Amino acid sequence: MEIRRLNPEDAVLYKALRLEALQNHPEAFGSDYEAEKDRPVDRYATRFQSEQAATFGAFHEAQLVGVVTVVCSELDKMRHRANLFAMYVTPSIRKQQVGQQLVQEALRALEERPWIEQVHLSVVRTNEAAKALYRSLGFESYAIEPRALKIDDTYHDEELMWYRF
């Protein structure tokens, strides 16, 4: 398994995995399949060049099988914070610690920015596997955001977690 930061050349693979994630687990993401299916690949490629964000990918046999993104705040008063977003591992490769490796790589990258003191994330409250993963890496829960997402007539609460360096 190769874990590395994605670059613009990975945009096509990323988009395909992102759309898979949005179809398989719409409750886990703020965006949705309809909003992203027609998004140009160049938009992802540009995002991969950002100094404020980094997306890490897990590759198995040249296929992108997992991703996670970290975004650092640009605001002076929030410069000490980063956010972890868009975590996804394709079902066929789950339970092989790919998610753990992705988050660990993202945290290592953030450690290179000594001004980053903490990392925040939100996870749908019913996703016990993801919450267990984050807790195993040192994230702690600090709040529940009720009805954070609404899909059709169903609401989903999100658990807010943070990690302190």
Rank of each mutant, 00 (worst) to 15 (best):
I3N: 00
R5N: 02
L6K: 01
N7Q: 03
P8L: 00
E9R: 04
D10Q: 02
D10E: 00
V12E: 15
V12T: 11
V12L: 12
Y14C: 13
K15G: 06
K15S: 03
L17V: 14
L17S: 11
R18K: 06
L19M: 09
E20W: 08
E20Y: 09
L22K: 05
N24K: 14
E27C: 05
G30A: 02
S31L: 07
S31R: 04
S31M: 05
D32L: 01
D32S: 11
E34N: 08
E34V: 04
E34R: 04
E36D: 13
R39Q: 11
V41Q: 07
D42I: 07
D42C: 08
D42N: 12
Y44M: 06
Y44R: 05
A45T: 01
T46R: 12
T46S: 14
R47N: 07
S50M: 02
A53I: 02
T55H: 03
T55E: 01
T55F: 01
F56Y: 01
F56R: 00
F56Q: 00
G57Y: 00
A58V: 07
H60R: 15
A62T: 12
Q63H: 15
L64T: 00
V65I: 14
V65L: 06
G66S: 09
V67C: 10
V68E: 00
V70E: 00
V71M: 07
V71S: 06
C72S: 15
C72T: 11
S73T: 06
S73Q: 08
S73E: 05
S73P: 03
L75G: 08
D76C: 12
K77N: 12
M78P: 08
M78E: 15
H80R: 00
L84G: 02
L84S: 02
F85K: 11
F85E: 15
F85Q: 12
F85G: 09
A86Y: 07
M87C: 10
Y88I: 08
V89E: 03
V89G: 05
T90S: 12
T90L: 10
I93K: 15
K95C: 14
K95I: 08
Q97S: 13
G99A: 11
G99D: 09
Q101M: 12
Q101A: 14
E105F: 09
A106D: 05
A106I: 08
A106P: 08
L107R: 01
E111V: 14
E112M: 10
R113H: 08
P114T: 07
E117D: 13
V119A: 02
H120T: 12
L121C: 03
S122M: 15
V124R: 12
V124D: 10
T126S: 11
E128T: 15
A129V: 15
A129F: 07
A130L: 05
K131P: 06
K131S: 08
A132Y: 10
L133A: 07
L133V: 05
S136H: 15
G138Y: 04
E140K: 13
E140H: 14
S141D: 13
Y142F: 14
I144H: 05
P146L: 04
P146I: 10
A148H: 15
L149T: 12
L149M: 15
I151W: 04
D153H: 11
D153K: 15
D153A: 14
Y155V: 09
H156K: 04
H156E: 01
H156C: 01
D157P: 09
D157R: 12
W162V: 10
W162Q: 13
R164M: 11
